[in-house]
Design a protein around this nucleic acid. Structure first.
Lengths: 200, 200
DNA sequence: GTCTATACACCGATAGAC
DNA sequence: GTCTATCGGTGTATAGAC
């Protein structure tokens, strides 16, 4: 048979496959998940709606695969940045310059009712947190900063949470307390991890 | 005329009006904003779809009015709690036991593309933050806690952000670093605001 | 790999009777 | 205040030709 649940499918990773995920990401960012439809995707890519279902079984698959692709991209960026000097500063820089907070909001909302997305989101948070913890532990062993008695996992949790809140609010148009908070954070970073780190 | 943009409308605050917003809130929480339709609301309340449009002009109005009602409810709860002893502990308790984080996620996502919701969300964040800052400043003047040199607005920003992140993640099924973070926070609360506060 | 055409369900919003 | 009925539009997903 040429159709049904076992119908012929387009190859993951192909050019059109990626264009479809690009379009889905753009719609999610600019219009929200209620507007993420096969017709809108086709319109953006410049193909016919039927083709979307040649590359993906269902709309849910597109969302899950889209998050997985983004997740992979971000984890690579994170792993790369953490090799640098002063990983604490790197952690903060990455948290504050991460994916657009509106896109994150959409995936968060989706994760609360789509089991596939939820699994991917959980996996991403845990991997990302582990990478950060390992980098901070390495830095501590090298004597690059004491982190003031706070366990590395607490540092990373706080950095992630505060950065997300700052970007989410400023995207929205709220700035109350931001300047003061950013100042406290940059002072903490400077004192925990000085410019010329002492080598062990 | 009995219809059109100036058509006759049901009274805000009436029983059915509130039932419609209750249903909308439930759908938003349990099924997400993509499922928030006039037909689903009518089904939940046990009325016909047409009646929803007697009480509200558009679906957008329902979302905006729903957030406004919830916002009012939460601000009253906050103002009440902040009269108590140890406002710092109260701030944390309220942040951690606030509205379901899944509902917040939905409104966050909606705020990014609905101008009415955005205005209400901004207003809520600013009022809520102001209330908390005032309470902390009063407590400091009374000598109830020094707050370790951190400006009150930074304290409230951090409490709100960290509490939201903790509840969001545990709702999702992530717990990595939570125990450690909660411990750091409860120690900070205890040291900044002891059980028997010194009066001025 | 890409297309036309289509089945069938649901959507927001309105007309107008009772 | 509440209803039946309806318009015009859009959604997922599939059949099957080229």
């Amino acid at each position: 048979m040429s159709s049904g649940p076992n119908r012929r499918m387009g190859p993951p990773g192909s050019a059109t496959w990626n264009l479809i995920l690009d379009a889905a990401e753009g719609i999610l960012l600019e219009e929200g998940y209620a507007e993420l439809t096969s017709r809108r995707i086709a319109e953006r890519v410049g193909i016919k709606q039927r083709l979307v279902y040649y590359y993906f079984h269902t709309m849910d698959d597109i969302v899950v695969e889209g998050f997985r692709r983004m997740s992979k991209r971000e984890l690579e960026r994170l792993a790369n940045a953490l090799k640098a000097e002063r990983p604490l500063h790197e952690v903060w820089g990455i948290c504050i310059h991460t994916t657009d907070s509106r896109l994150i909001s959409e995936f968060m909302a989706l994760a609360n009712r789509n089991e596939g997305v939820r699994r991917e989101v959980i996996s991403f948070i845990e991997q990302s947190r582990s990478l950060q913890v390992e980098a901070l532990e390495r830095a501590m062993k090298n004597g690059k900063g004491a982190v003031a008695g706070l366990p590395p996992v607490v540092i990373t949790f706080m950095a992630t949470s505060l950065a997300l809140a700052l970007t989410r609010e400023s995207q929205l148009g709220v700035s109350m307390g931001h300047r003061e908070t950013e100042r406290v954070i940059s002072e903490a970073l400077a004192s925990l991890e000085p410019v010329a780190p002492a080598r062990a």
